[in-house]
Design a protein around this nucleic acid. Sequence first.
DNA 1: ATTGAGCCTTCATCTTACGC
DNA 2: GCGTAAGATGAAGGCTCAAT
Length: 499
Amino acid sequence: MDTSTAPMTGQAQQQPRARRPHRPRKDYTNLDTVFESLDDLKTALRQYMDNATTPDALPQYVSCAMTLSTNAALPLKNPTDTPRSRRRPSYVPFEGFGDELDLGGHDVGSVIDEQHQQEQEQEQEQQLEYKTVLELVNIDQLKQRQIWQRAAAKGIVQQIQHLDGFKYCFNNNWSSKDDNGYRYSYTCLDSLENKDRHANGFRATNAATRRPGANTRGVRKPTYDCKGQIAVKFSAMRQSVEVVYKHHAIHKTVAERRPPPRKDSKRKSVTQQPVSEATPDASLLSFADHDPHESSFILHDVDHSAFQPYLDPVEPPVTKKPPRKSKDSATQPRSKRQKIQPVPPADQVERPLSLVEILQQSMAPSDTSLANHRPSPNQSPSPSPAPPLWQTPPSAPVAASSNTLPGNYAPIASRTSFNQAYSQPQPPDVGRFSKLAVPCFKCKAAHTQCDGLQPVCNSCQLRGTVCNYPSVLRFDKAPVPDSRWVQGRSESVWFTIQR
DNA sequence: ATTGAGCCTTCATCTTACGC
DNA sequence: GCGTAAGATGAAGGCTCAAT
């Protein structure tokens, strides 16, 4: 695909020579066609996704870039997006709702359903507005350009959502000086949920705010990082729109995640799931076993024995949630969201392990690595690092060293499909742990590109300098996702220490 | 009414590496 | 060498919903 041959606008020609586009951070495949319509693009993407999935195996990481030509008409989603209407409840009535009440389809639910349908129709009508790429990339007024391009980006994303069944949320937008257009990035909802669950894990419960030590968090859904992202790049320079699609479809689609039909009982909350006898981690395992709706995909085949060394209780087992008081006199009405409680200082809560460290430890003789984790009965309580129960798409750096995952990190290895997935070619540099390919000290200082080759990167080789790499991933900021399930325990310990 | 978790958005900050 | 564009990531808040 050569978009450099696209016609240039007069405005663009007056500008100084554009910088060469950044080398893509993450390699993705350019589908070697300029698509004349969004439908063509969707068809190609569908084919690409189908080819990336092998039967009985996890879908491969799909990452590709597609370009729309100037003639392509793009649907505009809420182009005049003034203060947006309240969003619809996430759990909308589904088909069959109200049947159990014998309302014969004329119940309140159906009324709501009709309203919902009407809103959908309105949305679809709104969506009938189209603009061509040519129009969109040549809007002079910056503000107008941003509004229209955003509307078109949203329209494109919505089309792709229909295609792959996942939900993407607006994440960021900025103006590209080189392309003379706006760029919009949308993130898969599951990636965002990871962050939320992570954040919720750090946030003290309201109960704990009032009564130190009362912080007992229930089990939460497993987390995993699908790296789902759609980037829409408008370029006046190239007179085109580029759509970059990245996703590792390792989780359920929106439709699959929809709650099961209600029978005569209410939906079970997560906290109602059978809670086993020990720490939050252990109860999570229990949850994973018993809840086929939410967790089976990720945790169903987990080899629990692999976790046993980590399951020494840190807290007294939580057998049952204490009955919630209807009114707590000490409670102030919560006008605003409470401030997040500060994360315990690093010297008091053990730093979570990175995947690399876990792998390194598990490659060490098992008795020592496990002994390191098992808290001595004489020791003051210290959080024992549990292996992560979230999962990340197999990434090249990790996969390279873990095609034969060591036994102590068995959950993934126990899955046949995962094994198959691992045995297949993996995308380079995928995922959060792409930071494994951190630049060496020299390249970082020189602001030069580092290929991450070890022991000596190409730049250092050319310069003839000593090449050194940071030994571990940084943890100077919020912990990386693999700490999530560890942190729940650390947090509990922190409150124990405080008391 | 309260609570915890999830949904979604916005904005800030950090990291990487292009190109002068 | 370094300014800075590109874009990745984190933090936080407003809101909804189901459960209590």
